[in-house]
Design a protein around this nucleic acid. Structure first.
Lengths: 339, 339
DNA sequence: TTGTATGCGTTATCAT
DNA sequence: ATGATAACGCATACAA
């Protein structure tokens, strides 16, 4: 039902030149007389000519489309995507976003869909379910650029933009210890999740440095989900030996814990101190406000797009780069004990 | 740097048939022998053949790409986009999301970019700054389908997916009145914003029905921004004649008001009752929790995509459709007065 | 049932 | 400085 858009052919006919001349004028190539160029440009403006990128893509064998695959659109990813979008736009790329909803099946389907849409490559953050990475390895075999960010898996080699998760876990735990906590629970997500693993490493390191014994019963794994975190925390709080501090690997989980602590009638930070991860806006709005480890989401997104474009434009064998960003601890009321 | 992907030409050569036969086999057309079809399909699988949608797009003159332009990625839009994505995916379309960040300039640039990426049309929610709609009218002239959702402007004719904002405003205000509020402030966004106008209409209607005089001094307009809402509310609370209820046209604004009320040391709902709009998850997590008018974001997104695809597939002159959804009031603590 | 030839809108390689 | 022509990968009308 759409009417045919004007093409360079139409312009050529109307202006009385060949299509190659039009093409050159439009792309501002040197070997062309100012005179004809002006006529062509004028007429193009007049009919509001829009170049057909599909045709260009076919010739140039690229689409200038970047496929971005994220597990969800929470604050962190929304911000990261903005960063990707900004860097991509600057470089003349358009971003196609796809959400896996933390589901491996959807991640698979979306990957296929993006590839079929002829994206020039993928910037990916893994779903929490993802164990098998064959779908990504397959596209790498075709030399399609792939950049992993935030949610990683050591199983795959690629350029990566990561947070120093161990440092984040260490900062949070050390802070809790300094507040006098001695039984600090680690509220993680699925056991296999790389960010969870890294943050737990930092947690253990901080405990060790402080001479606090590591207690496996304080390590709580489960779904990457608020309600599940609530249930898990509730169980923990029903035990006779309660934790006196909780480090949650994500604010989403921290909020579940937060609700459980409140519902149980315990005080924060007096009875239990809490630290989350991601520095979501909500953490500062709650009462008490929740301490959280913040990541430079926007910058990480920008970097991911930059690495992607760099890889895309490299002709020789590209050497994967891994860039780490430093987290920062935002101390708020949920963990501020005045000892 | 990417290696050449296999094409139907390669398959044709290898299998020993013509490219048209391959094309037909791949698309499962009737006039083809099972025998050759099987051979073609088998070989395609073997080399993991992926059809080049760019080439198909060029021939078919469509990209199967839907451009989606949203002002931001807050809860409402993130959810709506999920709905769009789901319906689009079912119909074989891929969604290209672009955020205007509430900026007219970016909206303009992104519109251009999406059009140049050859999207088949646009699903748009206007930025709060947008006054001039020429950029959309221009693409409509080319018979490119356009669907507006949520953030509308009466200035433009198109298919629209809207919330019954007047009903929303009416529900919220009526509820406040029933709680005994007599001086209800209306915390709006920019004066021109259609959702703000509709919700104010409902507000005035409810006042009128209750015989409460309309006081212009209680109508507070400003930026669509939490911090600005905080400042505006603070000013209001400093007056001798404070409001005893606030209806904010968005939870983003409601949260600003919420902080101001708290900082001012006033109690909710006793001193001031508060109702927001959008039913963001955060509203139920705060203490007191914030009452809010909820919109069926996911369903609205799905409907927008459906209208879009319907319009795209219509051959005759398409008649624009406007679909309204009903809001629902979620009553929480910030407005629950036990009289 | 299969093959041939043409076109989609653009870029690029030759000529002129 | 400009033009003719062959790609790019696929779909399709027309032949065989």
């Amino acid at each position: 039902m759409r009417s045919k858009a004007p093409t360079i052919k139409d312009i050529a006919r109307e202006v009385g030149v060949s299509i190659s001349t039009v093409s050159r004028a439009l792309r501002d190539m040197p070997e062309i007389s100012e005179e004809t160029k002006k006529r062509i440009l004028e007429y193009s403006k007049e009919i509001d000519y829009q170049p057909n990128m599909v045709a260009t893509s076919l010739v140039k064998r690229n689409s200038h489309l970047i496929g971005v695959l994220v597990p969800n659109m929470d604050y962190f990813f929304a911000t990261a995507v903005k960063g990707i979008d900004e860097a991509a736009m600057e470089a003349g790329y358009t971003v196609v976003i796809s959400q896996s909803n933390e589901s491996y099946g959807r991640e698979l389907a979306n990957t296929q869909r993006l590839i079929n849409s002829q994206v020039d490559g993928l910037i990916v953050s893994l779903s929490s379910e993802t164990q098998n990475l064959d779908h990504f390895k397959r596209i790498q075999k075709k030399e399609t650029p792939l950049v992993i960010f935030d949610r990683d898996c050591p199983d795959i080699e690629a350029s990566k933009v990561m947070l120093d998760n161990e440092l984040g876990g260490w900062l949070a735990t050390k802070h809790l210890i300094e507040g006098g906590c001695e039984r600090i629970a680690f509220l993680g997500a699925q056991k296999g999740l790389a960010i969870s693993i890294g943050r737990e490493k930092g947690y253990r390191k901080a405990l060790k440095e402080a001479g606090i014994p590591y207690r496996p019963e304080l390590i709580i794994h489960g779904e990457f989900d608020k309600d599940d975190a609530y249930i898990r925390t509730m169980e923990e709080l029903r035990k006779s030996q309660k934790p006196d501090g909780i480090f949650a690997v994500s604010d989403r989980l921290a909020i579940g814990a937060y609700m459980a602590i409140k519902d149980k009638g315990l005080r924060m930070p007096e009875d239990i101190a809490l630290v989350g991860f991601n520095d979501e806006p909500i953490t500062s709005l709650l009462f008490p406000s929740i301490s959280s480890v913040s990541q430079p989401a926007f910058e990480m997104g920008k970097m991911a797009a930059r690495l992607f474009i760099e890889q895309l434009n490299s002709d020789e064998e590209y050497e994967n780069k891994v860039v780490y960003f430093k987290p920062e601890l935002k101390i708020r009321d949920s963990s501020s004990r005045n000892r």
